[in-house]
Design a protein around this nucleic acid. Structure first.
Lengths: 183, 183
DNA sequence: TTGCTATGAATGAACG
DNA sequence: CGTTCATTCATAGCAA
């Protein structure tokens, strides 16, 4: 795949006019946009707030057409897919049964929230929920694949790590500054 | 021939109760059900009461498997996403600085009471929400996106408009009658 | 063309 | 109610 296409206008494809019958065209992120988003993600950003989404979108619009919903979806998808990938690793390779600590144990008991809201219940309360257990673990004697898995877990755990990110380090033009400070 | 064109998933029903014995995870609304729900929403229904939910669900069950909670969630989601979308559009496209009239700013006498319209009031009753006066305005020289935004605002206005809706106009079969009268 | 993979988009369900 | 999660649909790009 050619990596040129610097800047934007990568959506050169006909899009709408193409033989589709559905709505025309979906967002096609430029390499710069993907880079920034990925860096943000790796910096610890997982679930940007509405404000952050808008700021990011605004900044990224420099590199090409983009809407805030694109940023929103990007993070949703990226997070979800990393999660399911990790999940797959857990299931596919059960040989690592020495460590298992998915950051925050999700106790998935069957849900009954609609009835909770509308009183369609018939008694029997059960507001039990397991609290987080986030424990540390010995970081030694780990094989390649194992340490890789650890990385996954580590990534998951930094849900809300504080961070700041600056766009434009080696970009050709702008040196845009996008400092995200939460809380 | 098949080209994959479709406004939506054409799979629809079957699923759980069908003879295929497929997965029956979550509700998969039929196109008819979606149509009715959408029409109800567009008619002004935003937060149906428990009774209304029951009625709607009951009627829609004709078109396929459905539960009350599905209707409940549908409206919750639809409303939430409508607002979210509108919010995003407002911020994403500030280039419409020629028109700005949130909902019912009838009087040209400026926007003196935003709090009245979006009443997040805290001292008095709020029985008087939106009077459906929804004034018209020159629908000319409006770009595509602009008129789209207008539609958003218009939709927001009919928060609790009285309405009645009849299912089955051009439906293939039933002519179900679902008159919802509130208050 | 056909199939696969990655990923944008949508939405049912549910949480806080 | 706003936000988040899980699953699925749809499509662009590439490979065989």
């Amino acid at each position: 795949m050619e990596e040129g296409m610097s800047g934007f206008s990568v959506r050169a494809r006909g899009g709408c006019g193409g033989g589709g019958g559905t709505k025309c065209g979906r967002w096609n992120p430029t390499t710069e946009q993907v880079k920034v988003l990925t860096d943000l993600f790796r910096s610890g950003l997982r679930t940007p707030s509405t404000d952050q989404i808008q700021k990011i979108s605004s900044q990224l619009s420099f590199y090409g057409k983009i809407e805030s919903k694109n940023v929103f979806y990007w993070f949703q998808n990226h997070k979800a897919r990393e999660r399911q990938k990790r999940r797959r690793v857990l299931v596919d390779e059960p040989k690592d049964d020495g460590i298992h600590f998915p950051c925050q144990d999700n106790n998935i008991t069957s849900t009954k929230h609609f009835s909770e809201i509308y009183n369609y219940n018939q008694g029997s309360e059960q507001p039990e929920r397991v609290k987080e257990t986030l424990q540390l673990f010995p970081l030694n004697s780990l094989s390649e694949s194992e340490s890789e898995k650890l990385r996954f877990f580590a990534e998951e755990c930094k849900e809300n790590a504080a961070f700041s990110y600056t766009i434009g380090a080696e970009m050709d033009h702008p040196t845009l500054d996008l400092r995200l400070s939460f809380l």
